[in-house]
Simulated assay, not measured.
Amino acid sequence: MTGNATRQARAVRLGPRSIAALVLVSAVGGAALGWPFLAPPTSQVSAHAQDAPWLFTGLLLLLVAVVAATISESGLGPKAVAMLGVLAATGAALRPLGAGTAGIEPMFFLMVLSGRVLGPGFGFALGAVTMFASALLTGGVGPWMPFQMLSMGWFTMGAGLLPGPDRLRGRGELVLLAGYGFLAAFAYGTVMNMQGWPYLDPDGSPIAPDPQAGPLANLARFVAYCLATSLGWDLGRAVVTVVLTVTLGPAILKALRRATRRAAFESPVTFDAPTE
């Protein structure tokens, strides 16, 4: 089902610098997550396998901050900041509700809907800020936090890149968002598995990364690790995201679009001169 072709306002319009920063942080994040598959056994990275995740974590945290600053500089106005604060606070408050039990994490469906309405630039900023705020709220601060921020930024940004933001409405849009939420929930879990997997002791587990093995052997170990440790968790997250998207999605999408129209993000904020 399609509606009228009314162009949907975006809270953040990505410029060349913002896109370049996003590409850079995504490339570094991909390298930080995929180095066990990319580094040959004789490389210095493999020789310092226990140190590499910490080095990548520090670098990634700095780059996420650079991206957030760049997006803000490119057009995150006061109205968008207010919207970002409200949605990030709501998402952070939703995260502890399920306490992560069996993958029950209701914040993910809100990120899907928000990214869809407000666009990829706002979505990346919202995902990263929400995960940062929720980590402070739940005491989940650690070397995994920058990867959670980046992964949630990708997750929410992806919803903003889905086709038909101006025309697709109704049941068709819900099916699209539910399908994306289902697949992206598994992708998020896989990315976070890649973050924690290198910390395992290769001598203590047959599913831990082996610095002396080749990429294919380590890939097989990683798949076994995902199946053994997080498949049920990721499935729970995916199902909850789909159910909440289908049941609550229409009302929340309508509310977000109404708020976006009233905020008029693309209209400049002006102040009248005081009258005497």
Rank of each mutant, 00 (worst) to 15 (best):
A5M: 14
T6G: 15
T6L: 15
Q8D: 10
Q8W: 07
Q8F: 09
A9T: 13
A11E: 01
A11N: 00
A11C: 10
V12S: 05
G15Q: 09
G15S: 08
S18A: 15
I19V: 15
A20L: 15
A20W: 11
A21H: 10
L22M: 14
L22Q: 11
A27H: 13
V28G: 10
G30L: 12
L33I: 06
F37L: 15
P40Y: 04
P40H: 04
S43D: 05
Q44T: 03
V45C: 08
A47Q: 08
H48M: 08
A52E: 03
W54M: 12
L55P: 01
F56N: 05
F56Y: 13
G58N: 09
L59M: 14
L60P: 09
L61N: 09
L62E: 08
L63I: 09
V64G: 05
A65Y: 07
S72W: 06
S72L: 04
E73A: 14
G75A: 06
P78N: 05
K79G: 12
V81P: 00
V86H: 05
V86Q: 06
L87K: 06
A88W: 03
A88K: 03
A93L: 14
A93G: 07
R95H: 12
G98A: 11
T101P: 00
G103H: 11
E105A: 15
F109L: 07
F109E: 01
L110C: 09
M111H: 13
R116F: 14
L118N: 04
P120Q: 09
P120C: 13
G121V: 01
G121K: 04
T130G: 08
A133I: 01
A135T: 01
L137A: 15
G139E: 04
G139S: 10
G139Q: 06
G140W: 06
V141T: 08
G142D: 12
P143K: 09
P143Q: 09
P143R: 11
W144F: 07
F147K: 04
F147V: 02
M152E: 12
W154S: 04
M157C: 15
A159F: 10
L161A: 15
L162G: 14
P165F: 15
D166Y: 14
R167H: 13
R169Y: 11
G172Q: 08
L174R: 05
L174C: 08
L176M: 15
G179Q: 09
Y180R: 12
F182P: 03
F182T: 02
A184M: 15
Y188P: 08
G189I: 03
M192G: 04
Q195I: 01
Q195R: 12
G196S: 08
P198M: 11
L200Q: 05
D201M: 04
D203C: 02
D203H: 05
A208P: 01
P209E: 01
D210V: 00
D210F: 02
A213C: 01
A213S: 03
P215F: 09
A217W: 00
A217P: 00
N218P: 03
L219D: 03
L219R: 03
A220F: 05
R221I: 00
A224I: 00
A224Y: 00
Y225L: 03
C226Q: 07
L227W: 03
A228R: 00
L231K: 03
L231I: 02
G232M: 10
D234C: 14
G236V: 06
V242T: 02
V243M: 06
T245I: 06
T245N: 08
T247C: 08
A251F: 09
I252D: 05
K254N: 08
A259S: 14
A264H: 11
V269S: 14
V269W: 13
T270F: 14
D272N: 07
E276L: 10
